[in-house]
Each structure stands twice: as structure tokens, then as C-alpha cells.
């Protein structure tokens, strides 16, 4: 009884883990199959022959790599700018005395209540009148306007003791210097957490880039993959290769940075 329980206890997490990664493994195997192969026995997907020609074909003849780079570019730039502007604003609210501070903080809090999806239609009109549709700016800028980072960072900055700031002031440090060399380094875990959330949000953003891109060289992956598949899906193999090409860099990055990612996410839970 006890033994069977122990086996169950070890087996269950293992089986679930296999179920979770199985579709990804399957995708990788399918992408290695010669094109046009029809397969009725599902186990045959995993057996040879293998070939890399699909990858060569996808990377050489289509824009998939370009879309991958677009996604990375938009994600990275959005993340970097978000970190800069939100930490600057949070610093001002936390550490500088100015009029209407409370009012401005509440004004930022309002933004938390607004789900981005509910303002997409007017946002599109605004972007159109600003002539930033179908451009990198249009892809990036609306993504940095979330006040969540300001609020998280503000509460983090608040915990930096006043004395530290004041003694630095005494030594003649400028405000920017204090922000850059004292407060920011202390806030690293919070910054990492915001960076991860912003990047994942941008990486998975579907509707906005879908609405505003018209040129295929500006597509991000979530937008490009459906267009590719609707035009070229004759079988499983090419779509799965496209899926694999767009996932492999992320999977590799995940293996390298798993600890940091997990830390960043758990940080937000404790804070919240």
C-alpha cells in the first residue's frame, strides 16, 4: 500500500511532465520529416527518415526569420523603454517633492483599471491619425504605456531609506545620479520582474500587431505564422517547421535563464 503510493507519487509528476512537453517534442519530430509524407500511424512521426531540408527551405525562401527578429526587436525595445520610463516616473513619485503628487499617482492608478483590449478601437484611430500604423513605432509605443511598472517600482523605491538619499544629496549628487547609481541597482529584482512581464506580453501580443501591420516585412511572429499557414498549409510538415523555427530560440533561452525567469515571476506574486 505504502509502496504503491510512493510509486504513484513519483509517477504522476513524471507522466504530467511528459504530457506537457509532448506536443513540443512532436512538433520538433514532424519538422524533421521529408515534405509531403502522409502518415497514418502516429508513432511513425518519431521514426526516421529525418531531414533538415524543411528548415533550409523555410529560412531561405520565406520571411519567417525576419518575423522572428521583428518579434525579438519589438519585445526587447519595448522592454528597455518601459524599464527606463517607468523607473524614472516611479523615482519622481517616490523621492521628489512636488505639487499634485498624490493627484498624479492616482491618475496613474486609473490606468490599471483599463484593460488594453477595451481601448483597442479608439487606439487604432489615434494611431491612424498619428500616422504610426504599419511601423515599428506603432508596434512598440502603445506597449510602454502601462502604469503597472510605475506602481510596482514606486513601492519598491519607497523602501530605500531616506537617509541614503539625503546623504547622497549632501555629497552633491544630482538627482539623476541618485536615481542611476543608488536607487536603480537596489531595485534589480523588481526591474527583472517587470522586464519579464513586458517581454512576454509583447512577445504574445496578437491583436494589436495584427490590426496595424500591412507590410509583410513588419509582421511579428504571432501575425506572420497564421498568414504563412493559410497560404502554404498543404500538410503538417511545413507549418510545424515554421512553429519549430519560431520556438527553438525561445526554448534555448529558457534553458539558460530558467532561474532568472522563475525568480522574476515569483517576485511579482510576493509583492502583489
Amino acid at each position: 500500500m505504502r509502496k504503491s503510493r510512493a510509486v504513484m507519487g513519483n509517477l504522476l509528476p513524471f507522466i504530467i511532465a511528459i504530457i506537457f512537453i509532448f506536443p513540443i517534442i512532436w512538433m520538433l519530430f514532424v519538422s524533421l520529416k521529408p515534405q509531403g509524407l502522409g502518415i497514418s500511424n502516429p508513432l511513425k512521426w518519431f521514426l526516421p527518415p529525418y531531414t533538415f531540408t524543411n528548415y533550409v527551405h523555410i529560412i531561405a525562401d520565406f520571411q519567417v526569420l525576419r518575423w522572428l527578429l521583428n518579434s525579438l526587436f519589438v519585445g526587447i525595445v519595448t522592454t528597455i523603454i518601459t524599464l527606463i520610463v517607468t523607473s524614472l516616473a516611479a523615482f519622481a513619485i517616490s523621492k521628489i517633492n512636488f505639487q499634485y503628487k498624490k493627484f498624479i499617482f492616482i491618475f496613474f492608478l486609473i490606468g490599471l483599471m483599463v484593460p488594453g483590449e477595451a481601448t483597442l478601437i479608439p487606439l487604432y484611430q489615434i494611431a491612424q491619425s498619428m500616422h504610426i500604423l504599419d511601423s515599428y513605432i506603432g508596434l512598440i509605443v502603445p506597449g510602454i504605456a502601462s502604469p503597472l511598472g510605475v506602481i510596482v517600482l514606486k513601492s519598491f523605491f519607497d523602501s530605500v531609506p531616506k537617509e541614503v538619499i539625503e546623504s547622497a544629496r549632501m555629497d552633491g549628487c544630482s538627482l539623476f545620479r541618485i536615481y542611476y547609481s543608488i536607487v536603480l541597482p537596489l531595485a534589480k529584482p523588481a526591474l527583472a520582474s517587470i522586464a519579464i512581464f513586458t517581454f512576454i506580453g509583447s512577445w504574445n501580443n496578437f491583436l494589436w500587431p495584427y490590426m496595424i501591420t500591412f507590410s509583410d516585412h513588419l509582421y511579428t511572429l504571432p501575425v506572420g505564422i497564421p498568414v504563412f499557414n493559410s497560404n502554404y498549409s498543404q500538410d503538417y510538415i511545413l507549418p510545424m517547421t515554421v512553429n519549430a523555427v519560431s520556438s527553438i530560440p525561445l526554448i534555448i533561452a529558457f534553458f539558460f535563464f530558467e532561474k532568472q525567469i522563475v525568480k522574476g515571476i515569483s517576485f511579482s506574486g510576493i509583492k502583489g
Binding site: 525576419r66 527578429l69 521583428n70 525579438l72 526587436f73 526587447i76 525595445v77 515599428y136 516585412h217 539558460f256 535563464f257
Partner: peptide
């Protein structure tokens, strides 16, 4: 990692 990020950003920007 930082070098990698920067080069990706640069590369995609240059292709753009």
C-alpha cells in the same frame, strides 16, 4: 546575454 540582446536588436534594426 546582454551582448546577444544588443546584437539581435542591432541586426533586426539594420535589416529594417
Amino acid at each position: 546575454f546582454v551582448v546577444l540582446l544588443c546584437s539581435i536588436a542591432l541586426f533586426s534594426f539594420s535589416t529594417a
